[in-house]
Design a protein around this nucleic acid. Structure first.
Length: 78
DNA sequence: GATGAGCGT
């Protein structure tokens, strides 16, 4: 279950991304997409959940949730 | 960051 999290705050870290999703399921792996040049977040990242139902739960729980100053969007990536 | 939506070093 691969998830993509959009509209993340620019100061968000991969660590925080992991903590956010770990609260709703077991993370297999997570990736915060960074800009090659600046090293800053591009504002989105991927999270691989161990189980499909955990991914669904994470989407329902986190999609539209307030993170920092923006509401993030969470969708299934694949 | 910025029109909003978006699928990666």
């Amino acid at each position: 279950m691969k998830l993509i999290a959009l509209n993340l705050p620019r100061d968000f870290t991969e660590q925080e991304l992991a903590e956010l999703f770990k609260a709703h399921g077991n993370i297999k792996s997570c990736t915060l997409v960074l800009d090659a040049g600046t090293g800053k977040s591009k504002g989105f990242g991927f999270v691989e959940m161990a189980l499909a139902h955990e991914g669904e739960a994470a989407i329902k729980a986190l999609h539209g949730s307030k993170v920092g100053k923006e509401k993030i969007r969470v969708k299934q990536a694949d």
